[in-house]
């Protein structure tokens, strides 16, 4: 049985497993008797990936079948400062897993999403988890917090997702909430208004926001960046998800 390397974003971890991605998604989201379960997001890494920060070989050595012949589900190689030590070239497919274990595979794109007017909402997934509103588009946001920080705060690498604001992007005060399930919507509106009335590019909505946001709120896709580059995994349109990935879409919309 092959050993796969997975870079989990929720939580941040490097894992070796004998399960192929979809089965790993089920195991990781649904859990086993240990009752660890929930929405998950992970990348499959190039099997040849190695880095001096991780003892990958030891992890692979320990990843052997159980006595009854069943595959080893997971060997945690590292759970600390993982993302910053993974080369973005090693990232292969990104899997978005629903809480009942259905996986959606996303491929990276060489093109960034088109810039849209209005305000933006970002959920940082790793290594920290704030919810942030910003006047900046995804690339500028990445550059602000990773590449060219203008404040004391910076990250060596980041994984974040842009969430939908719909009417709030243009009209934070009066725009309809519609299908946006964000809690404390009054505070979110105020943060967006502050972006317009104060001279700031970003404003934190919540310091630690659970990263298990509804997948339907993803606006354009998932971004992963480090000091060298920014990679973008575009999210299919809702219509495409409903048409071609119905079962995943239904589970994602619980």
């Amino acid at each position: 049985m092959d050993v796969h390397l997975y870079l989990s974003m929720m939580p941040e971890a490097l894992i070796a497993s004998m399960l192929p991605p979809e089965e790993f998604g089920v195991y990781y989201a649904v859990g086993s008797a240990k009752k660890s379960r929930g929405q998950a997001m992970f990348f499959e890494l190039n099997p040849g990936f190695r880095h001096e920060y991780f003892d990958v070989e030891e992890g692979i050595r320990r990843c052997v079948p159980h006595e009854d012949g069943s595959p080893k589900r997971s060997i945690y190689i590292s759970v600390y400062r993982v993302l910053e030590h993974v080369s973005l070239e090693a990232l292969q497919t990104l899997y978005l897993v629903t809480q009942d274990g259905r996986s959606l595979a996303l491929q990276s794109s060489s093109e960034m999403p088109q810039e849209t007017s209005g305000l933006h909402l970002y959920q940082e997934i790793a290594p920290v988890h704030p919810l942030v509103v910003s006047t900046l588009g995804p690339r500028q946001f990445y550059e602000l917090i990773v590449k060219n920080p203008t404040s004391l705060l910076s990250l060596p690498a980041v994984c974040f997702v842009e969430l939908r604001l719909d009417q709030l992007a243009q009209d934070p005060e009066r725009g309809a909430v519609g299908d946006l399930p964000y809690s404390n919507i009054t505070h979110l509106r105020q943060c967006l208004v502050d972006l317009r009335t104060k001279i700031v590019h970003t404003k934190m909505v919540n310091r630690v926001e659970p990263a298990s946001f509804p997948y339907r709120t993803i606006k354009s896709g998932i971004f992963v960046g480090n000091q060298k580059r920014l990679t973008y995994f575009p999210m299919p349109s809702q219509n495409e998800l409903r048409t071609h990935h119905y079962r995943w879409w239904r589970s994602a919309n619980m």
Partner: peptide, 12 residues
């Protein structure tokens, strides 16, 4: 159906 925050919202 996508009103008042939709599925997962406090209203829901």
């Amino acid at each position: 159906s996508g009103m008042f925050g939709g599925k997962g919202s406090d209203a829901h």
